[in-house]
Design a binder for these strands. Structure first.
Lengths: 356, 356
DNA sequence: TATTTTTGTCGAAACGTTTCGACAAACGTA
DNA sequence: TACGTTTGTCGAAACGTTTCGACAAAAATA
């Protein structure tokens, strides 16, 4: 492990010499390309191992004109928010990148993005071969990325025709509301914010679908939504007040995410409304706080690491050979939907007085 | 902004041609090295700007034998914990790295580190010129880093003689306890866990120092500490129970961090002990949740981004010219202590019945 | 058997920078 | 004036890889 101070880094030249072949042959053998006999391949590989040879990325990059890096961009406020959602997505991407022998360069951009000023450095320097964009970002940024001509995959966000990997929000929401319906609830509210966000919109769709599939009318007064803003705990608290004021009061509520669900829970506690006895609450995401709240939160689990993993794999496909790439393109597989899982905890229960 | 599809990337050769100088001269001018006349320097710079020239990192790396990258390593569980402490540290480092035209490669390691198996890829591939290590990590990892011979700076953690950047925990703790003393409290408890952690130990030192400076005896029964474990909210809840059981009950408590402080607050609420009227609570770190808790938490603010910034600057110094480096070394400036700031909110108050 | 195709190996060129050494002009100083 | 030093510029080498084209031996085909 320890390097002798004077020991030069081994190069492919050393390996070639050790294996008694030409440099080019060594390269071929190492990369499994072209015609190399069994015997020499083995000799080269052994020599490489013996010398502890590690190829120098810079040299390869220079000739292949690829950087071996992918960029990962998200909004700073998303990255530093207390629920490490995107941190997990990033780690998933980083993990998968390792399999592809690539590095992930992280860059954050502000919510209010100004193209020239806030552009990620690797974009200006063209130090990446592809880009992952996680979460909602300013349109101006996406325009810039598109203009760069680099392959890009969006994560947890949709825009135009851009390739993306998203949670199956609609199906997830549906499973949540179906769960409530199965518990005998009929008057089920929806709580959410930032309705323009595609993910939020899909979750509302799922809510509506579940209700209509159950033959229930869709009552607009049950849909409590702030059109702008962020679906955070504070918003949940506020909308929780409106929820409790409804007449008659809903017996269950589907919240657009766990943060708002926890906010609604706060408000319920404040007004001494027993959860889940008088009110069932269900969230979405399965954040860390969902397990430790009192009561613990029934929610729809999202596999965050997998989101990053799949996105990177997709991006790798777009970057590698243009053939497969256009294949996928032409077959119209532009988005990948990641299934969710309903996690039943203690914030939901059979409707009071309901007899199965 | 948009690249014409067929347009080759500009090279220094293009710039040289445009400015009518040799490639070597262009390089000199661009990098501000050697002797270049005012006039030609200007011509080269203008040509570069006109052509939108961006040097290709790989080519430079190949000749300088530097990677231009620094590694940032931390434990996965630290990175994904819900308080984005290290995320902020990372962003600070990344920001500063930009000034030095370097990229930061992030790698996480597990708590139980096995050298061969979990080694960050950039360490094996030697794809970094220096390493930042944030937070507590396994000794085996640090040994590996040391053996690699790469310059390293620890952040928020101390080990042996390794250069580090840490919060001035002792002074911060002292300011916290001084604040409580100033409010008339005399019976002040300490709540913490993971006492072997250098930062925790320093905070306890600060606590003791403040008390003895005030002429108060150090009462061991007031020090509630789990020796192992993590100082998290759950731990705070548990130790909170022990705190409230003390006879006579302390009127104030200094918690080793905000997470435990919030846990103590939970317990106080549960037992209907009014905060801050009957019990003053003060934390450390100023996490996001400290502002929104009820009551909001008085705490010691830590400048997380600055921690990363300073660490990277320090590392850059160690990587750049060996002269300055050894200078600092020999002068013994191995650690940098970052000042804290007391943030007074609503969880601390004058001792009941105390008259200034 | 004669010819083409496949297999295996090699030397050399290329990628885009920095830096070394050579050289000459301009500028000091004796 | 003569000579050393500073200033300015340049060509060429070097960094460590991949890949191209040449070549020959072996194998397949006619």
């Amino acid at each position: 492990m320890a390097k002798r101070p004077g020991s030069r880094r081994r190069t492919i030249k050393d390996v070639a010499a050790e294996a008694n072949v030409a440099i080019s042959t060594a390269s071929l053998a190492l990369n499994g390309k072209g015609y190399v006999s069994q015997d020499t391949r083995k000799r080269v590989l052994e020599a490489a191992k013996r010398l502890d040879y590690v190829p120098q990325p810079a040299a390869r990059q220079l000739v292949t004109q690829e950087t071996g890096n992918v960029g990962f961009v998200l909004r700073a406020d998303h990255f530093t928010r207390s629920e490490p959602f995107y941190t997990r997505v990033f780690l998933g991407a980083e993990f998968e990148a390792e399999q592809h022998d690539r590095y992930v360069l992280l860059a954050t951009i502000p919510e209010q993005y100004v193209p020239g000023e806030h552009s990620p450095r690797f974009l200006r320097q063209r130090n990446v071969d592809g880009i992952l964009v996680a979460g909602k970002v300013a349109p101006a940024f996406l325009a810039e990325v598109e203009a760069s001509g680099l392959p890009v995959v969006l994560i947890d966000f949709e825009k135009d025709h851009l390739p993306n990997v998203v949670v199956d929000n609609q199906a997830g929401a549906r499973s949540a509301v179906d769960h409530l319906l199965g518990l005998g609830h009929q008057r089920i509210s929806f709580v959410g914010a930032d309705m323009e966000h595609p993910a939020v919109a899909s979750r509302l769709d799922g809510y509506r679908l579940a209700l209509s599939a159950a033959g229930l009318p869709s009552d607009p007064s049950l849909i409590l939504a702030k059109s702008g803003g962020n679906p955070d705990r504070e918003t949940g608290k506020q909308l929780g007040e409106r929820l409790l004021a409804l007449e008659p009061r809903p017996t269950a509520v589907f919240c657009v995410n766990d943060a708002t669900a926890l906010g609604v829970l706060d408000t319920a506690k404040k007004h001494d409304v027993s959860v889940p006895r008088s009110l069932s609450i269900i969230g979405f995401d399965d954040v860390t706080g969902a397990q430790t709240s009192i009561p613990s939160l029934t929610t729809v689990r999202v596999y965050k690491e997998q989101l990053g993993e799949l996105a990177l794999r997709y991006l790798a496909e777009l970057m590698g050979g243009a053939e497969q790439h256009s294949d996928r393109y032409q077959r119209g597989f532009h988005d990948i939907k990641l299934p969710t899982e309903l996690v039943v905890r203690n914030s939901t229960a059979r409707r009071e007085g309901d007899h199965e």
